[in-house]
Amino acid sequence: MFNIERGGEEHRKLSYKDKNCVGCGICVDVCPTDSLRLGPIVPIARGLIEMDLVSVNQESCVFCGLCSVACPFDALSLSIEGTDVKDIKSYPKWDIESEVHDEDCIYCGRCYAVCPQDSIIFRRNLPNPVDLVRGEMDIDEEQCIYCSFCADMCPAGAILIKNIPTASNDALNNSIEVDLSKCIFCGICKRVCPEDAINQVCSTCMYYDEIEEVEITGETLISESSCVYCSWCSKICPVDAITISKPFEGTLELVENDEKVCKGDSCHACLDVCPCNAVKIEDGKSVTDLNFCNLCGACVTACPQDIRVLSRTSMKLNNVNSESWNEILNTLLIGK
């Protein structure tokens, strides 16, 4: 993380948040004064070096803000007189989104489990299972021999035998208890009891219509500041409740030649730096699933064989009003 400032007629401040940075180097590629530097992304990704992915030369930075508008991941922001340029009308804006449609979400949590960046905030309220069953359960302590078959087999953990005999325990002082807030009247205890000490009746089916409808409520939110637009969440969502639009369109290919070939498991630098969990090593070669790739290009920088070819064909950065900026930004579209 860094914050650098410039006073004068306008107060300008450039802030960098390392936690949002994916190490793609787009900022470095567009900086007109070569003031930004990308650190060693592979050792950083492997936890061998602790440092920010991007550093800045404060002496040469002119606080133009091109890096901040080009970063699709909100890792850099330039503010002028306290206003982020992303909120200033005349500045370019990314037309990208990651959104959960509340009306469609069933709160299954699959998106939350799969997100490679932990960008999804998820909570849900499940009904209490006991509210969905009906029945009766009673243990005749006169007949119980405290064998604990029932307690050991109860899938709901509803039966507790106290004072299980041990060397230091009074084996004659046993007791058995049923926690009715856990019992689902499945009847396993009754079936396994060798003494017929358990009386249990399940009436869930009989009262089926009286039992309240199941309503699962919750909240699923994507933190846009840390989302990398990989679209794992939208692809895995069983009810199509998530929309992700990616910053770039294009392709990423592995192009080997006589001298340079992918070393797969020996290297796996691409896999380590990929923020999208889109890279796998299969049969000794790196395989990128473009469904999940955001075309950030971090793997291209990381590949020591330099055999990854990224071709971005379009980018969703709109409202670029400066011709010189447009020219620089268009260099991102040429193969990296």
Partner: peptide, 12 residues
């Protein structure tokens, strides 16, 4: 050595 060149690329 598998000639992956990671060391070459990353030696400070």
């Amino acid at each position: 050595c598998d000639d992956c060149d990671l060391c070459i690329q990353n030696c400070p």
